[in-house]
Write a protein that binds this DNA or RNA. Structure first.
Length: 490
RNA sequence: CGGGGUGUAGCGUAGCCCGGUAUCGCGCCACAUUUGGGAUGUGGAGGUCGUAGGUUCGAAUCCUGCCACCCCGACCA
């Protein structure tokens, strides 16, 4: 059994890998750096998809799908973009295999592609190439499209959920007539992400803007939500980019304005990925396994019967059926674990490992007393409550659990944002406490680079809610107008 | 891609230095007894040691290549 993060913070990754495997969420596949997401893990991703997708639709977006393969030449069109991705792409060069005569399957050299295809690391290029044909007039704008897809980035170093070679995500790509509108879209979507992270995942996040050196390749401005994991490292959980007219210019996407002028379109892109599952796991899990917030949990309530005879079982079944009906009517998802192949204690431990928020145990004794045993995953506490009114009690309790999980993570996060005014303090906090460090910085990439080399910490963001204040850069002593957050990150 | 480490049954491991076809635990199967926190007993099945070569009478063990994973670095959602 894994020991948990508090006792093994230095060995966090191993613990994390143990946990996700033991909680049956995912495993490494036979393909380098890729993962198999197992059914229970995928169910969690599906919940994320469903909730996010609903928000995208509510904010006026539609889903579409673009090709997996992107002609290599598309990458030559936006210089800074290719610079950011060229190093880590999978490239398709041939389209046929053949038998070499001895039973070995080899690549048929005669089937070489004239132009290589890139497996998308992100879809800006192929989408903007397509948008050129969709946009002629201001009447065609805005285009508000999202894509659910997989992408591939040939990372040198991979990590389950956090940085796999292939990952699942959604990428929104919008086109607008004005800069203002595009910026508003960028901000709207980072807020959608932040609300999702906090309200659904119960992971508190800091909304902010990336510094120039941390920006997305090809973006003019990158908004981010930054979460804090229990080991004191920060995790970028979602980004929303204002792309200006860079892609419109690169792919020649123009429209005729109301005034009859030809203008380049303004763009945004935004995305979250299966990395969110990593954030979820690392933000809430404890030594007993996963802790899922009720709003996200594929199974919110598990019911475990405890019985010796068939009569007792039938008795419990009848009660569970009525409880089931009551809870389903209130959109509570329930699992009645009446397997007779496992004992109750085993089931308790297993569902705890999987993070099910609430467990109801009912035995013959309960049936006599008109009670059940309720166990909360988040606090690990148990109480015996009356069967009467159980449905509404559970609904209320699920809300309470959701709040509690968030509050716990928020307290941890807030107690790990440390304001410092000297480089000595800065290093001390990073080394001994972890978390975010708020300090003045002269705004130059050179200083960021130096700090990273010396401390491994990078700027995570300039929080949107930070006020301007006069100060001096703690590294160079140059004047600064605003604080920024540094942290070690994944 | 550079440095370090690992790869033995579904999982976790011993054996490797000092070559002689593999240890233990969990899990799995059968039966019995059990069932309010990961049951117990008895019996049983399952591996040829990541992979391809080499050395040797003989390789899990020694040597080389390759692959994968983990850690550190560079890179990144």
């Amino acid at each position: 059994m894994s020991k948990g993060i508090t006792s093994r913070s230095e060995d966090y990754s191993q613990w994390y890998n143990d946990l996700v495997i033991k909680a049956d969420l995912a495993e490494n596949s036979a393909v380098r750096g890729c993962m198999v997401i197992k059914p229970y893990g995928y169910a969690i991703w599906e919940r994320m998809q469903a909730i996010l997708d609903k928000r995208f639709k509510e904010t006026g977006h539609s889903n579409a799908y673009f090709p997996l393969f992107i002609p290599k030449s598309f990458f030559s069109k936006e210089a800074s973009h290719v610079e950011g991705f060229a190093k880590e792409c999978a490239v398709v060069t041939h389209y046929r295999l053949k038998d070499d005569g001895t039973g070995n399957i080899i690549v048929d050299e005669d089937a070489k592609l004239e132009e290589e295809l890139i497996v998308r690391p992100t879809s800006e290029t192929i989408i903007w190439n397509t948008y050129r044909g969709w946009i002629e007039s201001y009447r065609d704008l805005p285009i508000l499209v999202n894509q659910w897809a997989n992408v591939v980035r040939w990372e040198m170093r991979t990590r389950l959920f956090l940085r796999t070679a292939e990952f699942l995500w959604q990428e929104g790509h919008t086109a607008h007539a004005t800069s203002e509108e595009a910026i508003a879209e960028t901000e709207q979507m980072i807020n959608v992400y932040a609300e999702f992270a906090e309200n659904t995942l119960a992971v508190p996040v800091i909304r902010g803007r990336k510094t120039e050196s941390e920006r997305f390749a090809g973006a003019l401005d990158t908004y981010t939500i930054e979460a804090l994991m229990q080991d004191g490292k920060a995790l970028q959980a979602g980004t929303s980019h204002f792309l200006g007219q860079n892609f419109a210019k690169a792919f020649d996407v123009k429209f005729t304005s109301k005034e009859g002028k030809q203008e380049h379109v303004w763009a945004t892109s935004w995305g979250v990925s299966t990395r969110l599952m990593g954030a979820l796991i690392m933000a809430h899990s404890d030594d007993q396994g996963l802790v899922l917030p009720p709003k996200l949990a594929p199974i919110q309530v598990v019911i475990v019967p405890i019985f010796k005879s068939e009569e007792e079982k039938a008795n419990i079944d009848a009660f569970v059926n009525s409880l089931n009906a009551e809870l389903k009517a209130q959109d509570v998802s329930i699992k009645y674990d009446d397997r007779d192949t496992q004992r109750p204690g085993f089931k308790f431990a297993e569902w705890e490992l999987k993070g099910v928020p609430l467990r109801v145990a009912i035995g013959a004794r309960d049936m006599q007393n008109g009670t059940v045993e309720l166990a909360r995953r988040d606090t690990q506490t148990k109480e015996t409550v009356a069967q009467e009114g159980l449905g509404s009690h559970i609904v209320a309790l699920l809300d309470e659990i959701q709040d509690n999980i968030f509050q716990k993570a928020l307290n941890f996060r807030d107690s790990h944002i440390t304001e410092v005014n000297s480089y000595e303090e800065f290093k001390d906090v990073l080394e001994n406490k972890g978390g975010f460090v708020s300090c003045h910085w002269d705004g130059t990439p050179e200083t960021e680079k130096r700090v990273k080399e010396e401390t491994k910490a990078t700027t995570r963001c300039i929080p949107l809610d930070f006020e301007e204040e006069d100060g001096v850069c703690i590294f160079t002593g140059k004047p600064s107008k605003k604080r920024v957050l540094f942290a070690k990150s994944y």
